[in-house]
Design a protein around this nucleic acid. Sequence first.
DNA 1: TCGGATAGGCGCCCA
DNA 2: TGGGCGCTTATCCGA
Lengths: 248, 248
Amino acid sequence: MLKLEDYSVILRNALDKSHAIVIGCNCAVKYSGRAESFLPEGDRILIIKEDKTLLVHQPTGSNPVNYMKSGSSHIISFDGEKCVLKSKNSKEFMEIAIKSIHFFNYLKMSDGKSIVLTGTERDMADMIMKNPSLIEEGFKPYSQEEHTKYGFIDVFGTDKFNNVTIVECKRYCADLSGVTQLRRYAEKIKDSKGISNVRGILAAPRITPNAEKMLKDWGFSFVEVKPPKYLEKFDKNQQSLHSFTGSE
Amino acid sequence: MLKLEDYSVILRNALDKSHAIVIGCNCAVKYSGRAESFLPEGDRILIIKEDKTLLVHQPTGSNPVNYMKSGSSHIISFDGEKCVLKSKNSKEFMEIAIKSIHFFNYLKMSDGKSIVLTGTERDMADMIMKNPSLIEEGFKPYSQEEHTKYGFIDVFGTDKFNNVTIVECKRYCADLSGVTQLRRYAEKIKDSKGISNVRGILAAPRITPNAEKMLKDWGFSFVEVKPPKYLEKFDKNQQSLHSFTGSE
DNA sequence: TCGGATAGGCGCCCA
DNA sequence: TGGGCGCTTATCCGA
């Protein structure tokens, strides 16, 4: 069984070599920077990545309870009782006081691969550009990501009566902020082009009741569109994935 | 050196006991649910927490490249070549194919502590409630977190001329969406109370130029207010923290 | 670098 | 459970 003092030496060495480091330990965390926080002693998982990202995870939840972004610097010291990790970057600092270590690992990681992800809002906009009738018959999209001073319009075009039409896509459930966003664009277009007749369409799988009310109050409309999932067909062939049933 | 097959047995056992599990491994990840994704083979850190949260970390960056939320279920199998972790919840599933394991740890974590965090938007609103002159002379706040159908107003009160005044706080830099938020509240109040004179104030450390223009177009105003950091005084006494200089 | 917007956002509160 | 929204949001993308 290694002592805390020994760990601090190994840790310092692993840091120098830019290994990925994973520690299970009991520690307390202090943070000051964009906000201020203190986390009393408890069991945590610490991760320091090769890019100097530092994560502190509690036993539950998806998000780290504390963290430092990549590019931070870390130094280790041993004060006779605790192993202390001090981290800082240009705007923030953190101090982790480690009382005991349950496990310790470090590893040079090799990973050049990037994730391939589909079904994003951008994919929705692409799909609408290729298949405008998803919005309505006669809709003619002209451009994507149209830039205005008041924001970026997802899809910009005209309807069958040649009215300027703005489409804002939401990949999940459209809410109040989606409506205000659409409204902001519509007003900007009216203003800059000097036209009074601008249609606004919110395209999403669904919409909250309040958002729908606000949408109608403003004379805009909702169209049900689901984001595409290109890989679904691929996965349909992978029977193992769909026949799988897990236990708890 | 344990074989993959042996690991799969240990892993299954650790899962049953709701230990926190940390694995350094080479794996590929497939996900389908709110979107679809595929991540080819590479070295990753896997974490499964006691609440069944699953995180997949690459060697860099703050965020997991893939994850499953707490409450998911996980089952392990060994297909003769790879250890396969299949995870699912009501809407999503993930499959991790583990080719090799670099390290493996599990641990029953004990952590009843919660983080104490200050300097949030809520703290800003508290500060303004206690010291209304931060907004302007004569401002009288009446309530915090006023609920309306169209959203929650941060601070609600009257100015020295008794005009209804709405304050929206932003802890960092106020942007266009902050302005539309304020505007939405102002309109809702005008509408519901049948008054035409509602003032809107955006309180933040700073504001983007476009947001400021839109704010003025709508007759609202900006007040520079910084979020409080109560622990700063405390930390001032901790010389070690401030005199610290890291390497790298 | 700043600004604007999305995210498989997450997590929290409250109806 | 769903709506609304802040977040030490992070991350991406364009000017």
